[in-house]
Write a protein that binds this DNA or RNA. Structure first.
Lengths: 210, 210, 210, 210
DNA sequence: TATGAATGAGCTTTCATTCAT
DNA sequence: AATGAATGAAAGCTCATTCAT
């Protein structure tokens, strides 16, 4: 029984490093994050970061992989086949809305990765082949909506996904400059219901057959 | 005649530093950008950066101020009072769409500034008080559209601005991760007309009085 | 029967470590060799190196001792008493020539040890007292050659040994810089017979009574 | 006059770094040498090493280039055309003998470079194209000696150079292991005349026409 | 006898910044 | 107004070694 415990310790150490590093990278960016700072904020030592991840970049890539893993499960919360396409579409949008709002670190990591031209995603064996399952669900909803006569049929699912993502991501990613310029915090809970409603309305108004 | 020339040389040196630094910061982020690299890419020397800007942060702030200054002129291209509100709305959206597409460095600087919690905007005397004139134009269009019966009246102009911005910014800011995950370049010219059209449609469908 | 087997396993493990470490030290030098690298190249683990040898330096010393042990058997291949002194001398030289050529790792270890001022030889109980038996054989040949009137009598056997060694060692030890500067590989098989012949000629011309 | 002084300071700083680094690399080898140690032994700082040389390897390469530069002037001390070939040959050998004895750091650097498979010479633009002028002089002496009937004509100048080098290098390069095994310091001044004489005799006996 | 996890000390290198002229 | 040389502080990373079982 000694072996499993040690293995669990190793996993625990790895997991803690990923967790602390996620916060640090999301907060400071890749170049701005300090390996020493990550070490200081965890119960293990800096040496362990190099023991498990080899270097800063590989740690960052694993942080990215871990962060992206979280979003893959979104669509599984949606029982799309038993829902009216209109309801399904709104629910899918709101699921994204809620997910992004509750995962600001993920959104920030994505921003950071874009600053780096997504070079680390390209370098990741995991993320390179990541198909977004939410897109399949969306495609299915659009098809069923078109069949039922509720939706127009000339839309590209990926464009709809872009519309949803842009709205949900923007609130989080551009929160600070927006707040500085317009003196309004897009994430102020007071605006939340109105924005969440707005997203669904925008989508459904656009998709509505005419 | 010596003085003015020297002044003009000084202005030219400043301008070149800003120009090179804009590219460097936009490309690498604030922490990732290197003062040495900026110096190497310009015709003047590193010492001049410190002579004119004091330190890296103040240079970055001036880069940001310079970049934001560019966007303020957008709405001036729009003769809003002589246009039908529906046309004016579509034109305003397309103006933003076009501007952002042709100013990727600005969008990237905004992303970078958000990574840094907009702390430099807060520190800038210029940017702190920056009111976005586009918002006034937008407010005016929405009011006229509501008066004419074309638009619904229950929308917050800033939310509409957010909708436009999110769509226009997302294509640029998230281009690389999107491309890495979905294997499609959002900025591929082939998609441009369709996205530009889509933005206007989304807006007008949503704003339409019902 | 368990004990002997374990002992044999232990010997086998030790032998493998020595073997792998010899290659690694000879290839990279003492400071350049990595304990991790040695461990990675063997079937056992890094911990075993410390288990059997205590530390890197003691491992290196044992590698050195093992390498020097190989050369002690050289002169035993020579049936010196039944040979004409001239033939014996040439054969002894060629034996050294052949041995060094076929043991480049030994030559490299000697170079490395010289870089370290032979401090590890001094620290080795085995090597400190190592008398080179080849020298006895050489001394005997020179004496018999002088008695027979073939050789001059005013030579120091150790100087002759130095002459032989310098020629045989140089080809191996300085192969790479020589090749880089003169664009000729001293170990190219095409030159081998000529160099081997030359060594004997040089020796016998010098030793010839006049 | 300010510029030249600063330039001289820069040159002086570079020269001091090379000088101290030569001793350190020659003493400890490439991997064993410490940049910190080099810095500690000079009047400038560690940062300057990186300012002028970029990294440890480039510093080592420049050390090597500087060390090799010293040996190129050897043959210029020899007025070969006005000497009898026999005398010229002995003088050339003694020049090499003396040079190597008085430049043990150079010999050690060559040994070290061989341990590294001469990879740094290969990487050096200077050393890659280094022709050894001493070889030209040697070729000339051999030719004149053959013409005069003093020397045999079937020898390759490079082989003769190898014979000279091996003898002169061996005393320095293998001094420590030799001393440890045979309890005799090859560089003991007491042996110097005898070895110097021996080298010339060996050479001339071998080259003598018969 | 054996081993995966862990580590302190120290290594090379980088970077924004300032000095001296 | 301009500049090449210099630098302190700290960054990322490595290495021989030991711990805990």
């Amino acid at each position: 029984m000694a072996q499993p415990d040690r293995v669990r310790d190793a996993d625990r150490t790895r997991a803690e490093i990923i967790e602390v590093a996620t916060r640090e990278f999301a907060d400071k960016g890749y170049a701005g994050a300090r390996v020493d700072e990550i070490a200081a904020k965890m119960s293990s030592t800096k040496r362990m970061i190099y023991y498990y991840f080899g270097n800063k970049e590989r740690l960052y890539i694993e942080v990215l992989e871990h962060a992206y893993a979280g979003i893959r499960a979104i669509e599984q919360q949606l029982d799309v086949e038993h829902l009216d396409p209109v309801d399904a579409m709104r629910q899918l949008a709101e699921l994204t809305f809620d997910h992004h709002e509750s995962h600001p670190d993920f959104i920030r990591l994505v921003s950071i990765e874009n600053i780096h031209h997504a070079e680390h995603i390209a370098r990741s064996t995991v993320l390179g082949g990541l198909a977004n399952p939410a897109l399949d669900v969306l495609t299915r909803i659009l098809a069923r909506g078109h069949e039922s006569g509720a939706f127009r049929g000339d839309v590209d699912p990926l464009d709809i996904h872009m519309l949803i993502s842009s709205f949900c991501v923007f609130r989080i990613a551009n929160r600070h400059t927006w707040g500085a310029i317009f003196k309004r915090d897009m994430l102020d809970p007071a605006y939340r219901p109105q924005h969440r409603q707005m997203l669904g309305d925008v989508l459904l108004d656009y998709l509505a057959a005419r």
